[in-house]
Simulated scan of single mutants.
Amino acid sequence: MLNQAEKTKTLSAVLVDDDHQFRAGIRSLLNFYTVQDQSISVVGEANRPDLALSLVGDKQPDFVLIDMELIGGDGLSLLQQIQDSGSSCKTLVLSGHEEDSWIYQAMQTGADGYVFKSQVTQQLQDAIASIMDDQIYLPPEVATGFFRRFQTTQASLPSQIGQPCDLSERENEVLYWLVQGASNVVIAKELYISVATVKAHLTNIFLKLQVTSRTQAIVAAIKMNLVQS
């Protein structure tokens, strides 16, 4: 059971969108949300990638909500910059683009989830809960079999993903469950190991695959045929 301190802890968020009215609407939604028994506080807003990156560095939010089209840049470049900065914050794309190609690009670049703006009121709270639980969130209508479709696409992997390499037996087991969309807690239960051990294995997997996020590791695993269906 959560103690009182845990119940009152607040998740911090940064909103990045070029439409100030949309940001205001999202801010209002977040004020009513509770995720993992925690309220949400918006600690910063930006309409440009450079301003957003500065906020991420200064505020160190728990998660960032990112539009794909921004003033003076785009969401993909911001996602990459956040990855390169070493920030541990989660990233959730809120986009009006519902085509698979946009989703592929965002997830390949390291986004933890993707929500259609047309369905934001129905999906946003669940999406935030998922990414904060170390899971990947995709709209239900595209989630089924999404990563398996990477096997039949010609999309290139991000340049930082290296060549196939040997993983230990345990690392392969962790990678298998990662591809299934399992959280660290679920992986730990399935393999009868601690969550800390799962995190250690994931760190090694990321290093060997030369990736920086769960989504990039999943994409790499599928493209390299490192896991079986």
Rank of each mutant, 00 (worst) to 15 (best):
M1Y: 14
Q4I: 09
Q4G: 00
A5Q: 15
E6T: 13
L11Y: 14
L11I: 07
S12I: 04
A13W: 08
A13I: 14
L15Q: 03
D18W: 07
D19M: 11
H20F: 11
Q21N: 09
Q21K: 13
Q21D: 07
G25I: 03
I26F: 05
L29V: 00
L30H: 05
Y33L: 06
T34G: 08
T34P: 04
V35W: 09
D37H: 10
Q38G: 10
S39T: 14
I40L: 01
V42C: 06
G44I: 03
G44Y: 04
E45Y: 00
A46T: 02
A46Q: 03
R48W: 07
P49C: 07
A52K: 00
G57K: 11
D58W: 10
K59R: 03
Q60S: 09
Q60M: 10
F63M: 01
V64Y: 00
E69A: 15
L70Y: 01
L70D: 02
I71R: 11
I71V: 14
G72D: 05
D74M: 03
L76Y: 05
L76I: 12
S77V: 07
Q81N: 11
I82W: 00
D84M: 13
G86A: 11
G86K: 09
S87E: 08
S87F: 09
S88G: 08
L92K: 00
S95G: 02
G96P: 06
G96N: 13
H97G: 13
E98T: 14
D100K: 15
S101N: 13
S101K: 13
Q105F: 00
A106S: 01
T109Q: 15
G110Q: 03
G110H: 01
G110E: 00
D112K: 07
F116Q: 10
F116V: 10
F116L: 11
S118M: 13
Q119F: 14
T121S: 08
A127L: 04
A127Q: 04
A129Y: 08
I131N: 01
D133G: 10
Q135A: 12
I136W: 01
Y137R: 07
V142E: 12
V142T: 10
A143V: 06
A143Q: 08
F147M: 02
R148Y: 14
F150W: 09
Q151L: 08
Q151K: 15
T153I: 12
Q154T: 15
L157T: 02
L157Y: 03
P158V: 03
S159Y: 11
Q160R: 15
I161L: 02
G162A: 10
Q163E: 12
C165G: 15
C165Y: 14
D166V: 10
S168P: 00
S168W: 03
S168V: 04
S168R: 03
E169A: 12
E171G: 07
E171A: 06
N172I: 15
V174E: 03
L175G: 02
Y176W: 06
W177V: 11
V179H: 09
Q180N: 11
A182G: 07
S183T: 05
S183P: 00
N184S: 08
V185F: 13
A188Y: 07
A188D: 08
K189Y: 08
E190K: 13
S194L: 11
K199C: 08
A200Y: 13
L202P: 03
N204W: 08
K208D: 07
Q210F: 05
Q210S: 08
S213T: 14
S213V: 07
T215F: 11
V219F: 11
A220S: 08
K223F: 02
M224V: 12
N225P: 00
N225Y: 02
L226A: 06
L226P: 01
S229H: 09
